[in-house]
Design a protein around this nucleic acid. Sequence first.
DNA 1: TTGCAATTCAAACAGTTGTATGAAACTATC
DNA 2: GATAGTTTCATACAACTGTTTGAATTGCAA
Lengths: 223, 223
Amino acid sequence: MASDQTRTAILHAAERLYAERGFGDVTLRDIVAAADVNLAAVNYHFGSKDELIAELFVSRSIATNRERLNELKLAEEAGGGRASIDSILRALVGPTLRGCLGPERERSTASRFMIRASIESVPPIRRIKNREIDHLRKFAAAMRRSLPEVSEVDLYWGLHFALAMAHQTIRDSERLAKLSDGMCDLDDVGTIIDRIVAVSVKALTGRQTQTKPAAKLVTRGAP
Amino acid sequence: MASDQTRTAILHAAERLYAERGFGDVTLRDIVAAADVNLAAVNYHFGSKDELIAELFVSRSIATNRERLNELKLAEEAGGGRASIDSILRALVGPTLRGCLGPERERSTASRFMIRASIESVPPIRRIKNREIDHLRKFAAAMRRSLPEVSEVDLYWGLHFALAMAHQTIRDSERLAKLSDGMCDLDDVGTIIDRIVAVSVKALTGRQTQTKPAAKLVTRGAP
DNA sequence: TTGCAATTCAAACAGTTGTATGAAACTATC
DNA sequence: GATAGTTTCATACAACTGTTTGAATTGCAA
């Protein structure tokens, strides 16, 4: 195993280049040049280009999923096993949005990479996303406990719509900014999350949420 | 001009192959083989591969946009210059959804192509989509007329969310079907449109204040 | 040191890609 | 039927792709 200097150098360089230029325009030769390692190192350490991309995406998305589940757990504990629909949806879309949006210049390479992964759809990433269903089922289950009076079909549609709004906001933030002539503030992630959660709750319950959780547990950029 | 047999044969074959296998896996050689024309014909008739893709996408999306604007016009005429928000949103998302969803086996090549174009994001198509903003502005304007009491920011977010739900439903219908174990009927386009419109209307006309308490159905910006 | 495995390296490999070329075949006009 | 313009064709091009190879180098244990 020695030092995985080479390995991590490749990972870092690849993440940065993919974030900057997208998957279509970056070749292995670009990556190894940026990482200052030999061309064969990629296949030696990762097996193939696709496995490199997969590793980048997997490691980031399990981090997000962990955050999601952690928030969900906290919400369910706080509600005595039955979290509020508000907090469930917040746990669902919050981590992703906080991880990808926010002031342009503050965005990490990782977040820019994840935005790319949302926009361009490349086979290895698509394969991983398809396995995300089991993860979503946990949220569907929590929602069912939270809103037993809502039909399952409506629940799934609500979940789907919440993800849709979050996802599209990440993917197409630029268009919204242009369309609104800058009026829609895409740097204010907290408010965006509030909006998406509010709309989703309305969609699910037919009425507005009374409770807006006072203080947030997690914020981007630790204290 | 002779007969544009060759031209249209290329267009048809390309649309079909892209619809079936996606943009990443189809080469010019695949296309000309399917169209039974010479390799050089693509560059002769279209200039380049990207221009071929662009032409396919443009012709389909101006058709959709025309439908949208037509529905919008009808709605505004019916409302005496001020269409209901319901009908505006329906004009926005209806044509796209009807064009892309519905029973699998009934889907035309064109609709499958447009689904691909939603999922995979390839440069020539992205460029065209970026020019779609002017088209959306017409809907934003209609919405403003329809809901003068709603702030512009909220209007843009509502428009954005409506598109988000429509778009994601097209893109990820398979995941929703799997997640809901088939309970969400993605063949019933009419109901899907109803759902999306209903949620969007609720998002737009419900109370908009998340931070301020107790304002009745009131304007959130200056009157 | 010796031996052995892990790692790095330059170079080549084996395809594939979109595009360009120049001659041939066609079409319509005079 | 000759001519000019359009369209087709086989072929070559030039570049780029991810991957493999086998030899060098390194690091570490005995």
